[in-house]
């Protein structure tokens, strides 16, 4: 019996080309998606604690966590303090000066964050101007303001 000879015509070439194009498109979309995974970068934030006359028990090297301790942001790399200044009345005049005995403590915290449309540690957005409650070492502090965020070399 003579074997059937199959013709590979222009019609088949057309289908093959379209399938190849779809596969290429799929591969491109897959590659593009994988590219959108945000890279990890090192950032430094300045956290300002609320003005207080008491010094909290915080030291360089302490870990910084969110309020319930589920996310570790990073570690404190430096601590500075400055007198708390505000506007108040003095002999009927408004003055801007230091309040005696009150200090503002600023912490520099180094953390590894994912950089996309913003910086995130875990699912938490890290941005200057935000305010929150943090675990600083073994101390829980409310009203901590993130003053600045900058990217640094790892």
């Amino acid at each position: 019996m003579k074997r059937e000879r199959k013709q590979f015509g222009i019609f088949d070439w057309g289908i093959l080309t379209l399938v190849a194009a779809l596969v290429a498109l799929g591969a491109f979309l897959f590659w593009k998606k994988s590219e959108t995974v945000p890279p990890e970068v090192t950032i430094e934030c300045v956290f300002r604690l609320p003005a207080s006359a008491e010094k909290p028990n915080i030291a360089v090297g302490d870990s910084v966590h969110n309020e319930n301790g589920t996310v570790m942001f990073g570690k404190i790399t430096s601590i500075s303090e400055r007198p708390y200044q505000t506007v108040f009345l003095q002999e009927g005049q408004a003055v801007y000066q230091a309040v005696e005995g009150m200090q503002e403590i600023e912490l520099t915290v180094r953390m590894t964050a994912r950089k996309g449309e913003d910086y995130r540690v875990g699912d938490i957005r890290v941005s200057a101007g935000a305010q929150g409650t943090y675990r600083l070492g073994n101390t829980l502090v409310s009203g901590v303001r993130n003053i600045s965020v900058k990217e640094v070399e790892a």
Binding site: E117, D118, Y119, S127, A128, G129, A130, S148, V149, K150
Partner: peptide, 9 residues
Amino acid sequence: LYSLRATLS
């Protein structure tokens, strides 16, 4: 609103 590094009220 949010920029890359800041939160704005």
